[in-house]
Amino acid sequence: MLVQLVQSILVVVLAVTVSVVYFIAGNWILDRWSAKSNTPKAEKIRPWIFLFPALFLISLYLLYPAFETLRLSFFNNSGREFVGMQNYLWLFQDEQMRTTLRNNFLWLIIVPLLSTFFGLIIATLSDRVWWGAFAKTLVFMPMAISFVGASVIWKFIYDLRSTDADQIGLLNAIVVALGGEPMAWITIPFWNNFFLMVVLIWIQTGFAMVILSAALRGLSNEVIEASRMDGANEFQIFYKIMVPQILPTIIVVWTTITVIVLKVFDIVVAMTNGQWDTGVLANLMFDWMFRAADFGRGSVIALMILLGVIPIMYLNIKRLKQEDEI
């Protein structure tokens, strides 16, 4: 068994050596060449030596497939026969697709909203108590847990036992203790979406909290003190002075979580596998691609996900351009 691990370490050593040799040799040859010809031409080539491995892999793994997927979306299930807009038409007529789109829409609104909301609350509160750092570590911790691991954790919480036995799922135990009826939460259509979203909110709140906490700490203390001198109370300071100032950061957090939501796959696949009307685009795409082996429809769904991130892409680029101009 350990052989395998040794192999992977060898691969690392090999990869590192090969790249280092590549860079050293590339630079050495350029240095020789520029010393001989004494022109600044070598300096025009050098950046590309630095860039090539990364750009090549990015092109191969992200850029080329994006265009290929676009092409495949006009082809049939095997990817050989041109079918025009047929896959797109299917997309808008399919019943299951409608449910999926609705679910995705709910995820896109609710998860970023609540993660950012709780993140902001916890960031604000924890900056004001002596055990704030500890509190933040605990809330941040789920970030390290895989979506599948988190799904096990939450499935356990939603667990249902027969009414005459003790409930071992925390949620049902609470419901019973409060005099309610235990339920199979993740099988109740429509509402079960929200129980799945809780898992992602639970994970992403820590992320929102850390970023927002850093932004809040970056605020000028004097401005806050000045507003206090002007008679603002704690709540007014929070939503009139602090929140407006960190609004750009809130937007960054929001969009980052939105991107994660669009790609969410693991939670649904592990919790319900898309049953009971909980499917989202990423799962549907996976199903069409690997269960039905329909490349055309799989590609169309993948493009739908891309459609969702395009506004965010645009925002990111705009932000980058602003930064660069400063």
Binding site: I58, P65, A66, K263, M289, A302, L306, L320
Partner: peptide
């Protein structure tokens, strides 16, 4: 080029699966 790279980091990797 940098803008393209930044744009790509939000591209869902689902998009890459079939061609790859």
């Amino acid at each position: 080029l940098f803008v393209i790279v930044v744009a790509l980091f939000v591209v869902p990797l689902q998009l890459s699966l079939i061609p790859l």
